[in-house]
């Protein structure tokens, strides 16, 4: 398997505060790798280090065979980036945005113009070719940003929270397109805090918190390794009281969050039987998912 990117023991601090604290990641060609973490975990800084936009305080980085940041310019020739916040050129039309962006890669106008129809097709924006940016919806802007990141036919794509702020329809269309890109053999590195996005798209994931990778593996691995396979969520005014009295007997572990109790179990049957005796409590029995792992590893407290 070819390694497209390897980062070893990356460090970056701002004002004495470690933002990236010993991160090592390697990406294989054709895989989709997800970097998950709460806000402020250091995901965006990690991406900026990988692109050579900031100097690391320590560590080694190679991207597409080039040492970064020293030869980041050469590496970025074959990389596409979808940033967290839209930065399309508002004065230009959809097609002009692609043309102008392609020039930054040293492409000839004729070469870019030849690619534009396919890019617009991919982004489902063919009918918006000559429309100015401010009239596009949020989903269209994201799709155009994705098309723009593909203008140089990159081997690797960095996507920083590609679906944040989109409605479900728009999000599903982006997911479908990202899946197509992995089928074409492109390597994707995406950051997200949507667990369903990560579970659906990523071959491998790492959960990041306080600048460190705290767990890494396939979505299935992470769930199997970190958490009991079944979850029973119990809701109701007296749920917390009930949990204190009964849950410990039937659940390996439980967490109280307001009027909800999350019980983690290997076998849910005894717990479900117990719940039959409390008709005032509502409950939901489901398999454990990535969000449970994420909350277990990074805690339930707000990060603001």
């Amino acid at each position: 398997m070819t390694t497209v990117l390897s980062a070893q023991n990356l460090h970056k601090s701002y004002a004495g505060q470690a933002v990236v604290d010993g991160v090592s990641i390697s990406l294989n060609k054709g895989e989709c790798f997800g970097l998950l973490g709460p806000n402020g975990a250091g995901k965006t800084t990690t991406l900026r280090l990988m692109l050579g936009l900031i100097e690391p305080d320590g560590g080694h980085l190679r991207l597409l065979g080039h040492a970064v940041p020293r030869h980041a310019r050469e590496a970025r020739l074959r990389v596409g980036v979808v940033p967290q916040v839209d930065n399309l050129d508002p004065d230009f039309t959809v097609a002009e945005n692609l043309l102008v962006y392609g020039r930054y890669f040293g492409m000839k106008d004729s070469e870019i113009e030849a690619r534009i129809p396919a890019l617009l097709e991919f982004a489902s924006l063919a009918h918006k070719k000559d429309v100015k940016i401010p009239t596009l919806s949020g989903g269209m802007k994201r799709r155009l940003t994705l098309a723009r990141a593909l203008v140089n036919d990159p081997e690797v794509l960095f996507l920083d929270e590609p679906t944040t702020g989109l409605d479900p329809q728009a999000r599903h269309l982006i997911w479908q397109r990202l899946h197509e890109l992995t089928v074409q053999g492109k390597t994707l590195l995406l950051t997200t805090h949507f667990m369903d996005e990560a579970e659906r798209l990523c071959h491998r994931l790492a959960i990041m918190d306080n600048g460190r990778l705290i767990s890494e593996g396939s979505p299935r691995d992470l769930i199997d390794r970190n958490i009991e396979p079944q979850v029973v969520e119990v809701f109701g005014e007296r749920a917390a009281q009930w949990a204190k009295n009964h849950a410990t007997r039937h659940a390996q572990r439980f967490e109280v969050s307001g009027e909800s109790v999350f019980c983690y179990v290997t076998d849910a049957q005894p717990l479900l039987k117990e719940l039959q005796r409390h008709p005032d409590l509502r409950y939901l029995h489901r398999p454990a998912n990535l969000e449970d792992v994420f909350l277990k590893l990074t805690g339930r407290e707000m990060r603001e």
Binding site: L51, L53, R73, E74, R76, L77, V79, V81, P83, V85, D86, N87, L88, D89, P90, Y101, Y104, F105, G106, N152
Partner: peptide
């Protein structure tokens, strides 16, 4: 405001 520089710096331009 427009983050134009940010967009450009993600390409081989410095």
């Amino acid at each position: 405001e427009q983050r134009t520089w940010e967009a450009i710096m993600n390409t081989p331009v410095t």
